[in-house]
Design a protein around this nucleic acid. Sequence first.
DNA 1: AAATATCCTGACCATATGGTCAACATATCG
DNA 2: CGATATGTTGACCATATGGTCAGGATATTT
Lengths: 216, 216
Amino acid sequence: MTRRARERGEAGGATRERNEREILAAAEKIFAAHGYRGASVQAIAEAAGLPKSNVLYYMGSKRGLYVRLLERMMARWNALLDDISVDDDPAEVLEAFIRSKMALSRRHPEGSRLFAAEILAGAPFLQEYLSGELRAWVEERGAIFRQWAERGLMDPVEPVWLIFLIWSATQHYADFEAQVLGITGKGELSDADVEQITAFLTRVILKGCGVRPREA
Amino acid sequence: MTRRARERGEAGGATRERNEREILAAAEKIFAAHGYRGASVQAIAEAAGLPKSNVLYYMGSKRGLYVRLLERMMARWNALLDDISVDDDPAEVLEAFIRSKMALSRRHPEGSRLFAAEILAGAPFLQEYLSGELRAWVEERGAIFRQWAERGLMDPVEPVWLIFLIWSATQHYADFEAQVLGITGKGELSDADVEQITAFLTRVILKGCGVRPREA
DNA sequence: AAATATCCTGACCATATGGTCAACATATCG
DNA sequence: CGATATGTTGACCATATGGTCAGGATATTT
């Protein structure tokens, strides 16, 4: 039975996998552009090249599809939140932080925008995650930043504001892509552009926080 | 006749003014949260405490209402884009830039989010503005930043990235308010919080760009 | 081949959508 | 007052919405 197979976690054939991938990609694009309410299953189906019924067959409901996409994005996010310790080099850690966040936004711009739309709407599906998991993560990093400051390795800035600065600055290039492209007059940002931006952000933020270079 | 009066730009009585204000405020909230497609006239009407027909009576159409809100927000934005000259002090100008942008986001968070949602959707209504007016504005400021760098008043950073950095960092607190509140655990940001954040951003960005203090 | 699990989709449903309109209410003004 | 502009709104329309379901088409397995 279909139901039992699904309950046992059996993914079924390759057909299912392929179609689900297609649907998820299409849905991410539509939800990213129009938010949860503004997206229609019909539009998602058209973007995926399938009849609406088929989308519902695989995903069950619009709500379920949306939640699944959010969870996928949070998983990607969590994957780059590796642990750091007080003994690490602040410059290295902060640069890696900026680089990996920038890379994530670049690799998954639609996912980034999906997240942004969810927050714009007041985070109805992510409230728990924000005030639970993510908040704890921020506090942990914050504690380490403070210790670095005590050791004179960087200025005593409020860690939370610093983290928000890095998040906003990096996410900007995915979320506000339309604005960035309109103003720069480019059709898209090249790898070289992104590298230049990353270098700029690293330079300004590290210097701005008084992070000492490693061998000083 | 109603039509002729409207064509002549006669605003009508105080009733109209009051109702329009109410509708615009409600619509800004709804559009900000759900984007153009995701917002319904019904929801706007309920938020304004009026029947749907009345909203359409005053605003003509959903599209017209949306455009009007966007234009209002762009006007607010333009109002703080005063001219600067090469002879001004970079530190003063950049700080004023950060402060005024922060104040705008704080005074009009819904407008800020409305703008964000429009960009997320690919800026279908604002493409011209971005690649025209706004682009020119950015280029003008950029030229001045470059001259400052030549004079040794600041590091030779790419002006466009710097402007984006300031925009994203300041706008973050309006657009991602739900995330900020969830992570900080606050119910809202106080004036003191905002002042602290503004000081942090000014400090980090000015220092990060090697802007020389005035009397140096 | 037979049996069974999976896949596919048009038809359908109740509800919501943006928008129109006619009828009526209220204000404004000669 | 009467006349005319302005404000108000329920009923209505065509279309789109998320979701269901029956019935058939394919795979897969025995």
